[in-house]
Design a protein around this nucleic acid. Structure first.
Lengths: 196, 196
DNA sequence: GTCTATATTAGGATAGAC
DNA sequence: GTCTATCCTAATATAGAC
């Protein structure tokens, strides 16, 4: 949808972020030029700089937005009570989020190395908070005798790695629904932490 | 170690590959220039082209070399017999390989998107062969009643994701030895597939 | 707010001297 | 086999017209 001229401040900003997210996920931050993003949006490269100060800020904004959204979504979802129920909620939440925001999940750890040091520190801190959520659930479950893992910290990493890996094979419209995928992963995750 | 002149064909070739592997893993293929690789090796950029036709061929060569090495190493390691023993061997093999070749493992799936189509197809085929190894073990174990997973294909992806994730936290010289890490992961992997 | 035009820097790759 | 020098292309970012 090529366009010619005029003012579209309301929609251009979001469209820049959408295009950048999609292109960064597909080709990588360093491989995507500002011209290419602009072309996807239907403007010239110079117009992007009405919305972002530079390319790095665009990447940071996408990652920061993703992590904030992830943590807020969990805070709204998180149940209390039984550690095992909380673990199941976390697993299903993570799978659902990963399936619905595959590009955000993808760049949020693929493009960490392209963040400048200050930005990297901020994103890493948010990531750490998310991992700590799972580790706390595992610790509580261990203390309550609901489950048994050799090391709560490493078990948390192992579980997140297992769950996030769904991105490598899942394609929308495939043989399994979102709920079926979540059920499969919950079955394996539950057993992995000795709550079988 | 800057150098000035002379002929070093025996060592320059391998050093180019080592430098490229390290830099690609740290910063990403697209973010690393040929000049930077040359600088690490201690030659000028033009000299690289005595060893490789272009940058893309360098990336492909690294990924191809890694996958070949991975598959050959497994063929030499793979035991026969009991599916559960084969599964344990696979888990320990994968953890050991991942810990010893973190950079190769890292770029072998981070840089897939920077491969040109023909090259991508080749690497994907090799990756598929490796995943098929694990899936066959799971199928055999399922048939023999050694283990129980909801879906052998997805369980294979889940396990590989879990195991490869060790790269995100393991640092040499940390509190855990390679064998201890392998034991932790084997414990979780074994339980995850219902062979607890 | 967007365009066109451009300053400036850096990239991949090659040519020819040594 | 490596160096220096360079071609050519493309990148980020900015300036000024509309």
């Amino acid at each position: 949808m090529a366009r010619t001229a005029g003012s579209h401040s309301d929609i251009t900003g979001p469209r820049i972020r959408e295009a950048a997210l999609r292109l960064f996920a597909k080709h990588g931050y360093a491989a995507v030029s500002m011209r290419r993003i602009a072309s996807e949006v239907g403007v010239q490269a110079g117009a992007l700089y009405n919305y972002i100060p530079d390319k790095q800020a665009l990447l940071f904004s996408l990652l920061k937005g993703h992590m904030d959204e992830l943590l807020e979504a969990w805070d709204e979802t998180a149940p209390g009570g039984d550690p095992l129920a909380r673990l199941e909620a976390f697993v299903r939440f993570h799978i659902r989020f990963t399936l619905r925001r595959p590009e955000s999940i993808f760049i949020s750890y693929m493009e960490l190395r392209n963040l400048e040091p200050e930005n990297f520190i901020q994103i890493e801190a948010l990531r750490g908070r998310y991992e700590a959520v799972l580790e706390q659930i595992l610790r509580d479950g261990q203390a309550a005798g609901n489950l048994s893992v050799p090391d709560t910290r490493i078990a948390a990493f192992a579980l997140i790695g297992m769950l996030t890996g769904v991105n490598t094979w899942y394609r929308e419209g495939g043989r399994l629904s979102e709920d079926e995928v979540a059920a499969l992963y919950w079955d394996m995750a539950r057993k992995a932490v000795g709550a079988g």
